[in-house]
Amino acid sequence: MKQRIIIIGSGVAGLTTAGVLAENGFEVVVLEKESRIGGHVRKWDRLFPNRRPANEVMEFIEKVLNSSVDLRCGVTVNGVIRHDEEFIVLLSNNETVTGHALVLATGFQLFDAHKKEEYGYGIYDNVITSAELETIFKEGKQLTTNEGKTPHRVGIIHCVGSRDEKVGNLYCSKVCCVTGVKQAIEIREQLPECEVFSFYMDLRMYDRHFEELYYEAQQQWAVNFIRGRLSECSENPDHTLILKAEDTLTGRPLKMTVDIVILLVGIIPDPETGKIASMLGLPIGTDGFLMSGDEHIKDNTTTIPGIYLTGAVKGPASIVNTIADARATAQQITSRFMAG
C-alpha cells in the first residue's frame, strides 16, 4: 500500500515537497485555502537576485507534480485527529483526508501596512506596498501615481512591519532588503528619469549575489541609499508625499518630497498556522512562527512524530532556501517510511 502524505499549503514549499514525495512513490494530498495553487510566488513578477521571471520557477515546480498528487483548492482545515499512526484532517467542505504524515507548509502573510499609520498606507493614495508594485510589473503596466502621472521620484521604505517592536515584530523578514534593491533597479529600468531613494536601517545582503545586486544598483542604476528609518509621511495638496527621516550619516533630520512611496512590507505568520498549531499542540515561537524539533539539526520535524514543517512556516525564507528546505523535508519523510 502506498503511504499517503498530507501537505497543508501549496506555495513553493508545499508543492516542492509534494513533487519530491510523488517522485519517491508516495500518494500526496495538497490542501490549499486559496482558489488556486502557487501561493505568493504566483503574484510575483521577477525574483531576486537575478530578476528571472517568477513564472519559470512556478512552471518548474508544477512540472514535477504528477498524477499521484491530489490538489484540493479552496479548503481550510477545521480539525486534525491523530489516530494510531494516522492523521485525519477535517476540511471546511466537510470532507476528511487521512494520511500517514502531515506537512505544514502554510507559509506566511505580508504585514498589513495599515498598522503603520504614520506611513500613510490607506490614507494617502500614492503610498503602496512592495506587493502592489510587483502586481503592477506583473501586469506589464507602467508605474504611475494614482493621478496617472509619471513619478519623478520614488521612495522605497525598508523594514515596514519588520524589526519593529511597536507592531510586535522584532525579527528581520530577511527578503525585503534585497527585494527593495531589486525593485529599485526595476523602477529605474522602467523609468530612467525617475530618481529612487531607499530609506534603510541596515542593508542585509546576506546571500549569494545579493551584495552584487546592491553593487549593480549603485553602479549601473544610481539608486540612492539614505541610512535612516522613516518616521512619518505626510501628503501635499498635489498628492505628492513628504518623507521624514533622519539622515543618520549627516546627523540631521531630512525631509524629502516624493511622488510615490513603496513600503517593503515584512513577513508575518499566516493566521491559519496558529490555528492549526493550537489544534495539534505544536509550540509557537515568540515571533509567531512554528518551532521545529531543533533549530539546527531537526529543523523539518516537530515534537510530534509524523508532523513536518517546511518553508516559511518557520520564519521568513527566500525561494532558494525554501526549495532546499522542502526537498529536505521530503527526503526525511521518504527515509522514515522507506526504512520502516
Partner: peptide, 23 residues
C-alpha cells in the same frame, strides 16, 4: 538602540534646532 534615527526624524525639537537625540 540600533541607531535608526526615527527618534531624531520625528523629534519636535529637531525641527527647530540641531537637537539630535540619537547623536
Amino acid at each position: 538602540c540600533i541607531g535608526c534615527g526615527s527618534c531624531t526624524a520625528t523629534c519636535s525639537t529637531g525641527h527647530f534646532t540641531s537637537f539630535n537625540i540619537r547623536a
